[in-house]
Design a binder for these strands. Structure first.
Length: 246
DNA sequence: GTGAATGTTAACAG
DNA sequence: CCTGTTAACATTCA
């Protein structure tokens, strides 16, 4: 369940643990569990698809990958989840399953450039445009998934944003007119926040226009599914109304 | 039972 | 050493 907006929802669900002291840490993640005990959580942030549990001198980075899940206060018994990390507080607990947990040295602000995070208030569209132009030969479908360019974008967002912008995923970056590129970047951010809004209401799928769709809602032609690019992820697009710049 | 999927990275080949 | 491909991991749903 992990594109940027879903991680923002996760952050909101655990932010009440900010300022709280960890009494016990458990799980099979390869990090120093005992060293977390008695530490107070300084902040909880997100960067792209990662949740960051921040301390003065280190940052715990949790990435849900494809199948990661979490539960708050109650451990999911009965399910066969692999408990990677469980944090226990005086009041409440949080559990992360089947995810990637890493311990990073230093504070989050020194490790991540938050202007690259599509969901961050400080996100910079001009910087994103420049980064796209720095990889002129790349197809836009791959570039959108590049976390160094758009931290937080996943396969749903890229397909929906390209559909809104009427750009074919196999378009070559340098062939896309600058105005179209700017429009795409804007759609990407806007769809990410629509994703957030709809996901909260549990109606994300209801609003898909291209992703896993059969027919184009604009022109009624079939939506094509094709594994593309070096990222080899399935793209969904309308060949009739999404222009291929190549 | 099979295959696919909102993802990344370690391992290997050249 | 660098680049590109494959494998691995983990879970749910159709």
């Amino acid at each position: 369940m992990p594109e940027g907006p879903s991680i923002v929802i996760l952050k909101e669900a655990v932010k009440h643990f900010k300022g709280k002291k960890i009494l016990h840490a458990e799980g099979i993640a390869k990090i120093d569990m005992p060293s977390l005990e008695n530490l107070v959580i300084k902040d909880i942030k997100t960067f792209g698809k990662q949740l960051l549990v921040c301390f003065p001198e280190k940052t715990i980075r949790i990435h849900l990958l494809m199948f990661g899940t979490y539960s708050i206060d109650e451990e999911e018994k009965g399910r066969r989840h692999t408990l990677k990390l469980g944090l226990h507080f005086a009041k409440g607990s949080v559990f992360f399953y089947a995810c990637s947990v890493k311990e990073l040295k230093g504070k989050a602000e020194d490790i991540f450039d938050f202007s690259g995070d599509i969901m961050n208030d400080g996100w910079s569209a001009p910087k994103a445009k420049k980064k796209l132009q720095d990889v002129p030969k790349t197809i836009i479908g791959d570039a959108l998934l590049n976390q160094d360019i758009f931290a937080g974008i996943g396969n749903i967002i890229r397909n929906e944003a390209l559909f809104r912008a009427k750009i074919h995923p196999e378009s070559i970056n340098e062939k896309i007119p600058a105005a179209r590129l700017t429009a795409l970047i804007k759609h990407t951010q806007q769809y990410s926040f629509d994703f957030l809004k709809w996901k909260k209401k549990d109606e994300l799928k209801k609003h898909w226009k291209a992703y896993h769709q059969k027919m184009c809602p604009r022109c009624d032609m079939p939506i094509r599914k094709k594994v593309i690019g070096k990222t080899k992820r399935p793209a969904f697009f309308c060949e009739n109304c999404q222009v291929k710049y190549s």
